[in-house]
Design a binder for these strands. Structure first.
Length: 840
RNA sequence: GCGGGUGUGGCGGAAUGGUAGACGCCGGGGACUUAAAAUCCCCUGAGCUUUGCUCGUGCGGGUUCGAGUCCCGCCACCCGCACCA
């Protein structure tokens, strides 16, 4: 008799070595099989694999393994998004080198991933901090430069005046620097930009081709790109100048009661030159962080310049304000304020007691309806608007544009919300931007044969700021053009650049260039990309842009990198805490004894409060360590839990009881085969055969739709039926099928099961079981019988029974007659094979 | 503030406009055992006048023979907002 318990601690490593020796997951680009590129967003090497990573990679792994079983040559690679701020923070806090810290983290995390048995092609692994990788990135950046897609301009950053350093948005807390506590200022620096706006129309149109992306992501990108049709027009000013404004709602022009310009608008600057109150106000606007959220939630503030703007239709003088909520980057940096129909303008007008006029109403009769304390941005008909009165909004917009163009004071225009991508970072741990500043020649690209421009190792992090900038020798080089003494660019690239082309490098890794066009063409676009919804806009838009830019440069032959996208939910966990004084003390799940009616702290046996189920985070200590779970339950139980219950796009609450249940299920499956191949004698069991074929077809469909929770439920159902069934040829066949059916989810158990059954070869390399379509059809159906929409009875009838027979059967039902209680039947609705509804 | 999403038993969830709660977890009862673990069987939305009836899918309306599903208006929570990755 075989051991009745499955021992993952022995089996997991054994099968992982078997796959590795067989090279099962090494992708062969010369294979004649259809190619399938399955990719999960590569991780930042923070130190430990998080359970959220495990969920992400398990989903991709199930698909990759399934694709292999269905005859595809699969590319399923893994690497490291290895540049970024945490390494520099570690350097500052612990005195370790960012490179060494990152390498150690990668080694640890790779070991963790290997224990879970992911079907990854590790031969293609790389880290973005490898000089080889970022050297190729520098070459690509220079190609974009040659194509005119790279330029420099002034742009605002968060400046910490005490630490004398640029802060990331996340380093600004309530408008103050996270280390110094000093109030952050906006400061202008000359920085590198990528012309993503040149592709705005393409990126927008391209969304229409991405029919395998979630609608929500396409909608978010569409709104982010923000194409709007509006009117750009000029107001004559009382000082003899003009101000150009842009509005998406020119229909509301008769409701304008002020004009507002951005603090860095030339008009504002001009006023400030002669007016120290204005200068002070602009200074005040410089305080605080640069984020849109900070700007928009801040109190709306304005400074009346005393200048009047002449309304193009009424000739009325509108006051011109400098306002903190107007952005220089969008439109013309100046707006007309229509308080009745724009919420920001409404708040502003209320504060500065400017008129609020209704120019759009539900109907002409509501022309003088009062506002309910807020602006009305919706649809309606124009009122109090001269020649526009009675028009619908769309119609009025067109009419105003026609008048403006005829009068020569404005033009209909398309404006994009999308801004160019600022890629400069004043930091060490990133890809050096390959340019040299020469006093004589200006900005000179580093010649390609001098790439990569590598980071110096001897840097210090004792003081804040960019170590490249203060390095004694690194930036001092000779100009490649004239040979005179010159300076290296000390900005490094945004890490989003690193993740904008890594999927190309996975597909092809020549030493002498970023990628090989023909190799890339074999695998790309990625068939299935999986990652967090938090990347819905930035990463995915940048990667789309980069792909189009490379296409534009003639380096690749496709426009969209990811054919199908899936965004998975987070892994969450209960929180445990105690209130002590005015703060919460958090406890980790390993410090807690959980029972059905509460939780106690193991250390003192006293109860703790069970808090909300929230995203796992170190600060709330509600994290579970994947390694510890693999130790206790084995890789397959952890994988199974990642796939069970919650739909993959939703959050998954981790629970001790849940993982224990998964551990039990692994053993249940094992018991079915623990004594070897089952007896194939006994009476035929056609019902089990049907269930098995339905399960194979259903699990396949669920995996392809990434609905793993449903596949899991179907496997539970079949397992239960197999356990209950007595010996039969059908049961023997079902048992023989189980290992392949569960292999994508529980690959180690599947191999051990097949071994116990005496099946030769690796399940990971086996074919997916075939379905007999004849067994998927049912000949009986249960139909619902309703009286006035309420269920009163059910009938089991032959499939395809005609309407008349169904109606007669339903009316003959004793329960129906009792429920009708003699009432007259007015109507009978029959849906064949579904239901009969009797309306009395 | 703006953009996007989610909401169904004690819990995770299932359900082409057609039998709400599949499947799993927790809990209760029983079997096996000297005992426990493991395992197996049964029950498990709420309420009631319990052969059955009523209520029930965040809240308030609506469309429909029929709404978790479609429409309108709210509420709560989550994600993103361009230097976190």
């Amino acid at each position: 008799m075989t051991d009745q318990r499955f021992d993952p601690s022995a089996a997991d490593g054994r099968w992982q070595r078997a796959w590795e020796q067989a090279g099962t997951f090494t992708a062969d680009s010369d294979s004649s099989k259809p190619k399938s590129y399955v990719l999960e967003m590569f991780p930042y090497p923070s130190g430990r694999i998080h359970i959220g990573h495990v969920r992400n990679y398990t989903m991709g792994d199930v698909l990759a393994r399934y694709k292999r079983m269905t005859g595809h040559e699969v590319l399923h690679p893994m690497g490291w998004d290895a540049f970024g701020m945490p390494a520099e923070n570690a350097a500052m806090e612990k005195g370790v080198h960012p490179g060494g810290w990152t390498r150690d983290n990668i080694a640890n995390m790779k070991a963790q991933l290997k224990r879970i048995g992911f079907a990854l092609d590790w031969t293609r692994e790389f880290a973005t901090c490898d000089p080889e990788y970022y050297g190729h990135e520098q070459a690509l950046f220079l190609r974009l430069y040659e194509a005119g897609l790279v330029y420099r301009k002034e742009s605002e950053v968060n400046w910490d005046p005490v630490d004398m350093t640029v802060l990331a948005n996340e380093q600004v807390i309530d408008g103050k620097g996270w280390r110094s506590g000093a109030e952050v200022e906006k400061r202008k620096l000359s920085q590198w930009f990528l012309k993503i706006t040149q592709f705005a129309e393409e990126l927008l149109d391209g969304l229409g081709t991405l029919d395998k992306w979630p609608d929500k992501v396409r909608l978010m990108q569409e709104n982010w790109i923000g194409k709007s049709q509006g009117l750009q027009f000029r107001f004559d000013l009382s000082d003899g100048n003009q101000v150009e404004v842009y509005s998406t709602r020119p229909d509301t022009i008769f409701g304008a009661s002020f004009v507002a310009v951005a603090p860095d608008h030339p008009i504002a600057q001009g006023v400030a030159a002669n007016n120290c109150d204005a200068a002070k106000f602009i200074d005040q606007c410089k305080r605080g962080a640069t984020t849109a959220a900070a700007l928009e939630t801040a109190e709306k503030l304005g400074f009346d310049t005393g200048i009047g703007a002449v309304h193009p239709f009424t000739g009325q003088h509108l006051p011109v304000f400098i306002a903190n909520f107007v952005l220089m980057d969008y439109g013309t940096g100046a707006v007309m304020g229509v308080p009745g129909h724009d919420q920001r303008d409404f708040e502003f007008a209320t504060k500065y007691e400017l008129p609020i006029t209704r120019v759009v109403a539900r109907s002409a009769d509501d022309a003088d309806a009062p506002f309910a304390g807020e602006a009305e941005a919706g649809d309606g008909v124009l009122v109090h608007s001269d020649f526009l009165n009675g028009m619908a909004v769309e119609e009025a917009i067109a009419a105003v544009i026609v008048r403006a163009e005829a009068g020569g004071w404005g033009e209909g225009q398309t404006v994009w919300r999308l801004r160019d991508w600022g890629v400069s970072r004043q930091r060490y741990w990133g890809t050096p931007i390959p340019f040299i500043h020469c006093d004589a020649c200006g900005i000179v690209p580093v010649p390609e044969d001098q790439l990569p421009v590598t980071l110096p190792d001897d840097v210090d992090f004792k003081t804040p700021g960019n170590p490249l900038e203060r390095h004694p020798t690194w930036k001092h080089v000779d100009c490649p053009q004239c040979g005179a003494a010159a300076r290296r660019e000390t900005d490094t690239l945004d890490t989003f650049v690193d993740s904008s082309w890594y999927f190309l490098r996975f597909a092809s890794q020549p030493a002498d260039k970023p990628f090989d066009r023909d190799e890339v063409a074999k695998w790309l676009p990625v068939e299935q990309y999986i990652g967090g919804i938090e990347h819905a806009i930035l990463h995915l838009l940048y990667a789309r842009f980069w792909t189009r830019a490379l296409q534009h440069c003639g380096m690749i032959d496709f426009a969209e990198p990811f054919a199908s996208l899936f965004t998975q939910g987070m892994v969450t966990h209960e929180t445990y805490s105690r209130r002590e004084g005015d703060r919460d003390i958090w406890y980790g799940p390993e410090e807690i004894e959980r029972s059905s009616d509460g939780a106690v702290l193991v250390a003192d046996g006293q109860p703790v409060d069970i808090g909300k189920v929230v995203k796992m985070s170190k600060s709330k200590k509600n994290v579970v360590d994947p390694d510890a779970m693999v130790d206790r339950f084995g890789a397959d139980a952890v994988r199974w839990f990642m796939l069970s219950d919650s739909p993959p796009e939703r959050d998954l609450p981790w629970s001790e009881a849940g993982i224990e249940g998964c551990g039990r299920f692994v053993q249940r499956l094992w018991r079915i085969v623990a004594n070897g191949a089952p007896d194939a004698a006994g009476d035929a069991n056609p019902a089990l055969a049907k269930l098995m074929h339905r399960t194979i077809a259903g699990v396949a469909a669920d995996i392809e739709a990434l609905q793993f929770n449903k596949a899991v439920a179907k496997i539970y159902e079949l397992t239960g039926a197999v356990e209950k069934a007595g010996p039969s040829p059908e049961r023997a066949e079902a048992v023989a099928t189980l290992p392949r059916l569960v292999s994508p989810m529980m690959p180690h158990l599947a191999e051990s099961m097949a071994e116990a059954l005496g099946t030769g070869g690796l399940v990971a390399e086996a074919d997916w079981p075939t379905v007999d379509p004849a067994l998927l059809v049912d000949d009986e159906v249960t139909i619902a019988v309703q009286v006035k929409g309420k269920l009163r009875d059910t009938l089991t009838v032959a499939k395809g029974m005609p309407r008349e027979e169904l109606e007669a059967l339903a009316l003959a039902s004793e329960k129906v007659q009792r429920s009708l209680d003699g009432a007259e039947v007015r109507k009978v609705i029959v849906v064949p094979d579904r239901l009969v509804n009797i309306v009395a």
